[in-house]
Design a protein around this nucleic acid. Sequence first.
DNA 1: TTCAATAATACTGTATGCAGCATTTAGCGC
DNA 2: GCGCTAAATGCTGCATACAGTATTATTGAA
Lengths: 228, 228
Amino acid sequence: MTPVNAQPSPEHSARIERQPLHDAIVSRLRDMIIEGHLAPGTRINEGQIGAALGVSRTPLREAIKYLASEGLVDLVPSRGAVVKTFGAKEVRDMIDLIRSLEQFAATRACELATNNDIGGIRELHDRMIACYHSGDRMQYYKLNQAIHSGIVALADNAALSDMHGVLQTRLKRIRFIGHEGPEKWASAVAEHEEMIAALEARDAPRLSAILGHHLTLAWERVKDGLPA
Amino acid sequence: MTPVNAQPSPEHSARIERQPLHDAIVSRLRDMIIEGHLAPGTRINEGQIGAALGVSRTPLREAIKYLASEGLVDLVPSRGAVVKTFGAKEVRDMIDLIRSLEQFAATRACELATNNDIGGIRELHDRMIACYHSGDRMQYYKLNQAIHSGIVALADNAALSDMHGVLQTRLKRIRFIGHEGPEKWASAVAEHEEMIAALEARDAPRLSAILGHHLTLAWERVKDGLPA
DNA sequence: TTCAATAATACTGTATGCAGCATTTAGCGC
DNA sequence: GCGCTAAATGCTGCATACAGTATTATTGAA
């Protein structure tokens, strides 16, 4: 549930963080699944993966259990773990749920956010726009997600941020597929601009509406590339 | 994330289910935490607990990682796992989130539920009322939760049910504390009656309002017994 | 040639053992 | 008697080894 990425702070002289092996493995496996190196339906062979990562089976198994609880893999008795396959309905359900969460967050954020907080989001937005113009798609995606997570964080509700994070992670792999055309991309960017404006105006209903529409677009983008 | 309780079906001649050991341990530990046999802040000693449950450390460790992802325990590097302590704000956040989830579910449920579905909920409700009159508090609680889970299930969104289930589990321990007086209990029962009526009338806004108020009451009940 | 039954293989599930870190306690100096 | 240092203990983190189960291959007969 709680994200594991305990990235060491960028400062020098910061305390040396000794990340437990199973944590590191969780991160690696997550990335491998998200980036498609472990395709959906793939059975995870403990010996193989363990050898590839240079770790023993015990911490690897612990990591797998963690990911199972996160919903990225399924545990089949006596047959190990398989990378979860998401059908169209499941993805749609998750997007519906994310919408609900973000809209809840929007209301709270408009009540709670300081100008400073919103400035932080605005800054992410500006950097994202820069990536849009320079065509840096990867970085664009990352900032995009950071903005959404940021808005959720403004609601100041740890449980909410947790859940949202898990869902985002599950969908990351899917979003990799959704390569939108330039015109849709442009409209998405425009929507983001509106989002920030609504947030700065503390206009919760408007922000809510935009977020909702934004996610509907996301669904439109990915729905045709899905199985079942 | 996904509940592990793979209870064997009550039929005879049903396939014999061999539950993996780590699954069984997850359930046991969850119960121990919920029922307070493992108090918040307690460090989980692998050797000790393993001996007590009669299992070896490996599956136990796997179970702990699973519960960590569920948010019931914290993993402290080189110091093992400690049972998570929830402060007042965290509990309030979780209840706010549950409210948001249930209200989202309510809207969907009113759109989707068949008469048959609603009949199922009504039946649970009637059994709960029976427990209320007979004073069987434990069974009352269980049916109460089953009803809420049931309404969420009517929204036909697996991800939603998952999240709701996890939050319910986290709060179970807290709810154990909230021993309401008879008059509050009576009003809670009355609200439940209204809930079912609203559901049968497919009156989503009303159902939503009742659920919201219901959870506010729940918060009122528990908030004074919390640390921090 | 095809299907079935049996044996072999490979992988998961569980237990045990060892090394390193944290904490506590005992000993020593002041 | 009090504080500091150091050894000792206990626990976690990781690896390895063994047992049981599912799957595949092989051999036999129809």
